[in-house]
C-alpha cells in the first residue's frame, strides 16, 4: 500500500540555519501522525514542506506516491510549474495556527471559495456542500457571520470546514489550537477527533499531548531539525527512551 506521506532524508535551510537535517517520516493512509517538539525544532517547516509552501533542499518527499513540487522523467527531476503545484495542493488540506480565514468573506463564503474558484463547481452545489460542512463542525447558525464576529475556536472550525470543502486526501494541521483560549481548545479537538474517526489521514503539529495520546497512531518528537524519537503515542508519552524527549515531556506534561 502506498504511504500517504513518504519523506526521506529531508533537508531544509533558511539562509545559514539548517532547519531540517535529514528527516524521514512515513504516514500510512488513514493514520494520524502527531508531531511534537520545542519551538524551532522544525516541525512546522516539515509540515509546510509537505504541501510545498516551503521547498526542500534535498531528500525526497512524496504524497500519495507523487513527488511534491517536482516531476521525475528519465531519472531527471523537473521543477513543476506554479499551476501544477496548485493542482497538487488541491488534495492536501491545511489548517493554520492563525486560522487565516478570508476576513472579507462570510463563514459560508470562506468554505465555498475554493470549490467555486478552483474546482469550478456550480454555485448551488458549492453552497449545499458548504452548508453541510459548517453543520458538521457545529456552526450551522454562524454561516452568515464574518470571521471577525466569530470566536477563535469558531474561526478555526470554519478553517477546517474550508479545507474539507476541497475533499482532501490528507489534512495538515499546524498547531491548530495554539492561538486559542484554553476553553476553546476542546471544540476544535472534537472536530479533529471526528475526522480521525472517519479515517482521514492527518499530520498534526501540536502541543496537545492528550489529543496525541487518544487519537494519534504515531507520535513523532522532533528537536533541532531531526526526529529524535518516534512510536506509539501511549508508549512514548508514558516511557520516553531518549533523554531529550524526557526533558521536553517533563516540561510540558
Amino acid at each position: 500500500m502506498t504511504p500517504m506521506v513518504e519523506a526521506l532524508a529531508i533537508h531544509k535551510r533558511f539562509g545559514s540555519t539548517e532547519v531540517l537535517r535529514g528527516v524521514d517520516l512515513v504516514v500510512g493512509p488513514g493514520a494520524v501522525s502527531c508531531v511534537i517538539g520545542p519551538s524551532g525544532s522544525g516541525k512546522s517547516t516539515l509540515l509546510r514542506c509537505i504541501n510545498h509552501l516551503e521547498r526542500i533542499d534535498s531528500g525526497s518527499l512524496r504524497v500519495d506516491g507523487h513527488l511534491v513540487g517536482y516531476r521525475e522523467r528519465g531519472g531527471k527531476l523537473y521543477e513543476m510549474r506554479e499551476s501544477e503545484v496548485a493542482q497538487q495542493r488541491r488534495d492536501i488540506g491545511m489548517v493554520f495556527q492563525r486560522f487565516n480565514l478570508f476576513p472579507h468573506k462570510t463563514a459560508l463564503e470562506n468554505v465555498m471559495e475554493a470549490p467555486l474558484v478552483v474546482r469550478r463547481h456550480a454555485r448551488g452545489k458549492a453552497r449545499d456542500r458548504a452548508v453541510e460542512l459548517l453543520d458538521r463542525v457545529g456552526l450551522a447558525d454562524r454561516r452568515d457571520n464574518y470571521p471577525a464576529q466569530l470566536s477563535g475556536g469558531q474561526q478555526q472550525r470554519v478553517a477546517i470546514a474550508r479545507a474539507l470543502a476541497m475533499d482532501p486526501r490528507l489534512m495538515l494541521f499546524d498547531e491548530p489550537t495554539s492561538a486559542l483560549d484554553p476553553e476553546l481548545v476542546g471544540e476544535v479537538l472534537d472536530v479533529m477527533r471526528g475526522l480521525a474517526r472517519e479515517g482521514m489521514t492527518m499530520v498534526v503539529v501540536t502541543h496537545e499531548m492528550g489529543f496525541a495520546r487518544e487519537v494519534g497512531d504515531d507520535l513523532v518528537f522532533m528537536d533541532e531539525g531531526v526526529i529524535v524519537e518516534q512510536g506509539d503515542p501511549r508508549e512514548v508519552l508514558a516511557a520516553p527512551r531518549h533523554e531529550r524527549t524526557k526533558a521536553f515531556l517533563s516540561k510540558v506534561l
Binding site: 492536501i92 478570508f102 471559495e113 474558484v117 474550508r162
Partner: peptide, 19 residues
C-alpha cells in the same frame, strides 16, 4: 497568511490576487 491560505487551497496566483 492570506496568500498562503489561498495557495494551500489550490488557488492560482492570479485567483489569489483577484479574489
Amino acid at each position: 497568511g492570506q496568500t498562503e491560505a489561498a495557495g494551500a487551497l489550490g488557488m492560482s496566483r492570479a485567483q489569489t490576487l483577484r479574489r
